[in-house]
Design a binder for these strands. Sequence first.
DNA 1: ATATAAGGTGTATTTTTTACACTAAGGAAC
DNA 2: GTTCCTTAGTGTAAAAAATACACCTTATAT
Lengths: 231, 231
Amino acid sequence: MENLPAHFDSLFTVDCIIFGFDEGELKILLIERNEEPFKGWFALPGYFVETTEAIESAAQRILYESTGLRGIYMEQFYTFGALGRHPQGRVITVAYYAMIRLTGQKDVKPVTDFASQAVWVNVKDIPELAFDHSRIFRKGFEKIRNKISYQPIAFELLPEKFTLTQLQNLYEVILDKKLDKRNFRKKMLSYDILKELDEKQKGVSYRAAKLYKFDKRKFAKNFQKELSFSK
Amino acid sequence: MENLPAHFDSLFTVDCIIFGFDEGELKILLIERNEEPFKGWFALPGYFVETTEAIESAAQRILYESTGLRGIYMEQFYTFGALGRHPQGRVITVAYYAMIRLTGQKDVKPVTDFASQAVWVNVKDIPELAFDHSRIFRKGFEKIRNKISYQPIAFELLPEKFTLTQLQNLYEVILDKKLDKRNFRKKMLSYDILKELDEKQKGVSYRAAKLYKFDKRKFAKNFQKELSFSK
DNA sequence: ATATAAGGTGTATTTTTTACACTAAGGAAC
DNA sequence: GTTCCTTAGTGTAAAAAATACACCTTATAT
């Protein structure tokens, strides 16, 4: 950390995988680039980190510019710095993922000037992306797939009030496999992080299901105890 | 990723937590800085990433400069970029950990010109470190503590041939708790990643224990199957 | 009233985790 | 060479967790 130039600059970026769950499908937000390099390609929302900005804030800013949302929990999952990843020079990117609630209106605001549009794409239909963004996406997706197996992180994707079947569908889409209904419910309820509401689903043409809420307090209490190797 | 300056430079660093296991103690390698800022403080080995260098290579180089070792597996675990972390300006650092085999001689080569010495320090006695390195250390240590609970990553720390008791001691030191001998052996052997050798410990004044080797092939085979949420 | 579609529930079996204590072996000390 | 000391090495029973599996209930639509 020595021999610092009197003034220095940095060239690194933040790229975000923004997950949303909509109509039973897990999607991410992609932008279509309208500038070179990779003009016309789809890419993860991302941008340079200002020198006066913490990485974390840059991630929040990019999320805001892409979706209009603020204060969403984002998790940093890896930093990519292979030499050839940007055709014009050395760019290091810190990758984050976020999970957001798509409440019908799909709040996408393709704000930035370098994107011609922003679209939600099913994770099963992601095209080849600009730069090394395909790799970044795969790594981030793998991360949440692993994490969800031992930590209930997926509630951010659901509406505030949800049914157990919706929750199970979400798990099935993320894990890409069918789960047993009875076992899923038993296990999920045993975590004791859901609050059963006095309310039922509306507008369905079949028996309405009970609604639940995620209980942050209980979650914090029940998931502080760490993983153990045996005793 | 637009509006690139014709020429650009980046200011970021790599910092490494280098773990070693010696005389029953888990240690990390620290350097003592002999330049400002934080002259005289201990710090994690780290340095700038050259613009012509992949992050990964920089990590390897730093490991080599600190220990004389090459080709060791290193894992990136987090990137730190809070605004105030370096007193002279914005420096982003990508943190890696490595685990190395301390085979008696303790191969420390305090090579760099900005370090007056390099020392192995027990993880229980880490002093307050320069910059935000204390925080980096805590985060990295937590990471391996979690990871070892579901992946046998600790073999790199042991001599090539080791006894089950040595392995158990290592786990106990990392997890900071006592484990049951029978259960530990049962579980470890059930992973089927150890090769039992036709050889025994030497030079001990008590019953010599069988020696084992870590079997990389079996490890790869048995740990590709991923974690699952239930079926 | 009937059909349709999802909601909601329990138990037996298997697997995994935990708790727990004694004999065996080898070298050191006398 | 006998005794002592220290660690090696082993099995089983009980508890907990994970799995497999099928039917009745309830709400709406026709």
